[in-house]
Amino acid sequence: MGIIEKVPAYIERLPGGGIVTTSMDWVLNQSRASSLWYMLFGLACCAIEMMAAGASRYDFDRFGMIFRASPRQADLMFVAGTVTHKMSKRVKLLYEQMAEPSYVFAMGGCACNGGPFYYDCYSVLKGIDQVIPVDIYIPGCPPRPESLMEGCLKLQEKIKKEKMSDWASDRKEV
């Protein structure tokens, strides 16, 4: 939260400033939406579908989505699988290590709300949104790669609507 983040909000107030910010928005959003590098991070069987989506048959590479093995280089995190209470601290740590802007997918029933482990379970977190903010929820047990791709397209739409002037509000304080 430096002064640089408030600059777009000031430019917008200047006469003609809106043209500058919307053009900049377009460039930034286009580049962000078409290079969503995701974190190589799987917790359970949903990770297999995530791998299938990344592999040649469904091929995430054509959206510019390449997996990165480090949260520092990743923009997107698929929480793919059952999140236990024990694991939730590690998931949160990984989310906090990702550089801004970072996006989160809750993939599958377990990550959305506990899924099949909702009842009579002592160890599973009832939804990853209790720990970190989630952008896209994908139901399914596990979801097909097609639904994962649908979610990615929805996220791209969401990214393309972002504005520089919204930067001043810190996303990580959700």
């Binding site: 909702y118 009842y119 009579d120 379970c121 002592y122 160890s123 009832k126």
Partner: peptide, 15 residues
């Protein structure tokens, strides 16, 4: 937790 009748934080018994 594996004992019968155990309850804990955010534990939801099967309806």
């Amino acid at each position: 937790p594996m004992r019968k009748g155990w309850t804990g934080p955010d534990f939801v018994p099967m309806p």
